[in-house]
Amino acid sequence: MLEEKIKQITDDFNSDIKSVEDIQKLEEIRIKYLGRNGVVSSLFDELKKASNEEKPALGKSLNLLRNKITEDFNSIKTRFESLDDLKEIKIDLTLPGTRRQIGSKHILTQTLDEIKTIFQSMGFSVYEGPELESDYYNFEALNFAPDHPARDMQDTFFINKDFVLRTHTSPVQIRLMESHKPPVRAIMPGRVYRNEAVSARSYCMFHQVEGLYVDTDVTFAELKGTLVSFAKQFYGDDLKYRFRTSFFPFTEPSAEMDITCFLCHGGGCKVCKQTGWLEILGCGMVDPNVFKYVGYDSEKYTGYAFGMGIERTAMLKYGIDDIRVFFENDLRFLKQF
């Protein structure tokens, strides 16, 4: 009997306390259950009438009930009181916060950083060289014979007949090999210049990253492995790639690496000129003539080299369709990255 009542009262209290909305209502509930003539008191009165065998167990249940009601009441009361305190603080939190200006790296720097990080993790050092370069480093030592049509591949800004604005970062390869014995493994980022009319697709200067690895057992297969690993880290794991034959005077064999166009996924679109492929870099095995210029033994050593354009890479990755925006430095552009 009494046991059932205890259960009933527990349920009643639970539902009463759930619906409480303010401190007055809470007080009413306290009086109802814990007051001198409250429900709990009356149960204790009933306990007195219970048999001696039942008394200890029932007494324990009743005490538990009283404790639970007291605890619940107190915790809810504290919550109401603290809410009351907050009403005293008159602050409009919806006002905007004060802003702090954050700067940003140019998107070309960000792109280069990504490339650098990947190659540095593969054990590459970083070297740089001058932009105003001699004909010797820019062409001759890279196996561009004088009066060879290969020189037409890169429209050159001349300072005079012996000095040029470098047309590629490859001269840094020569400088590096001149000053270091193998093994050398390095990337060489930098700015290059081409005497080409400025348009949405081409600019008279841009940035490249060059790579070089020379040691006793460097093979084309390792070149492929390294570049595929780079491309997957940079462009995404699921890409397809191909290496096709190309020509650079300073590598033999030479290749260009294409990846599936990530805009059309190989179906053909404007960006990939309907081919489904995007050219991302040029590469090859270092030509023995280049080793001759820097005094490396081409029987003993083999090496690979590669180079890629940073603007082109960033344009592909971020959907930028006009190369000129990189160099206008419009704050509205800079702030996007």
Partner: peptide, 19 residues
């Protein structure tokens, strides 16, 4: 060129790295 295998392991020399 597609028939040239793509290696999946390279060795890294532990010499000093320059940046």
């Amino acid at each position: 060129y597609d028939n040239i295998p793509t290696v999946s392991k390279i060795s890294i020399s532990l010499g000093e790295k320059n940046d």
